[in-house]
């Protein structure tokens, strides 16, 4: 029997100020080791769904379960985000005043107490994403593809069960996109990490084990 990682039950999200119903009664279960893509046009609610999965946003209605535990407190979500979830963003979102290795170390504060251990782990993760020569480079000294690799290495800090990637190749050319997707797929397969990726590109979406489609805040396929 497949192990559940995240389970969403009857999730609704409305933004009262904009009178928008971003998500409407979405129920979804994501399993351990799965590669799932969420596809849909711009403004369909893909990113909102990802934010709710990570506790960055609160649903207006519905429940979120992580490893079968209902999560509804801030403290619980912080704990889960720091240890169990890794984030990869379209805009990379690296801290500009920190080097590549320091960016990877940032999520480890409070989780790994030993400074040397943090350094070694961050260095090892950057090796894994092919950036062993770029450890001490600042984000502005790296190419777009390299920055996204740093972001992927950062998402792997603290060995999370789940990696959430929001349009990770949206800002990259096709060749680099291909290598980033391969890297994410490798991590999914070799490390058995669950990967949930938001995209609006059908070709990329088809690489996943399962594809769900969102349209106007509703699950239409998946």
């Amino acid at each position: 029997m497949k192990k559940e990682i995240v389970s969403l039950k009857n999730i609704c999200r409305s933004f009262e100020t904009q009178q928008v119903q971003a998500l409407n009664d979405i129920s979804l279960t994501i399993y351990q080791g799965e590669f799932l893509t969420i596809i849909g046009p711009s403004g369909s609610g893909k990113t909102t769904l990802l934010n709710i999965m990570s506790g960055m946003d609160k649903p207006s209605k519905g429940e979120v379960f992580f490893n079968n535990d209902k999560i509804d407190s801030y403290a619980h979500w912080v704990k889960i985000r720091s240890k169990r979830i890794g984030f990869v963003f379209q805009q990379f979102n690296l801290l500009p005043t920190f080097t590549a290795i320091e960016n990877v170390e940032v999520p480890m504060f409070g989780i790994i107490k030993d400074r040397e251990r943090r350094r070694l782990d961050a260095s090892e993760l950057l090796h894994q994403v092919g950036l062993k020569e770029r450890l001490n480079h600042f984000p502005n000294q790296l190419s777009a593809g390299e920055r996204q690799r740093v972001a992927i290495a950062r998402s792997l800090a603290n060995s999370p069960d789940l990696i959430l990637a929001d349009e990770p190749t949206g800002n990259l050319d096709s060749q680099i996109s291909h290598s980033i997707l391969n890297l994410l797929r490798d991590i999914n397969l070799k490390k058995n990490r669950t990967l949930v990726m938001v995209t609006h590109n059908h070709e990329i979406a088809e690489l996943a084990d399962r594809v769900i489609t969102i349209l106007d805040g509703q699950l239409v396929k998946g």
Binding site: M56, A75, V78, S82, N93, G110
Partner: peptide, 8 residues
């Protein structure tokens, strides 16, 4: 970003 990375 720090929030997203799980900083309390």
């Amino acid at each position: 970003i720090l929030n997203a990375l799980g900083w309390h």
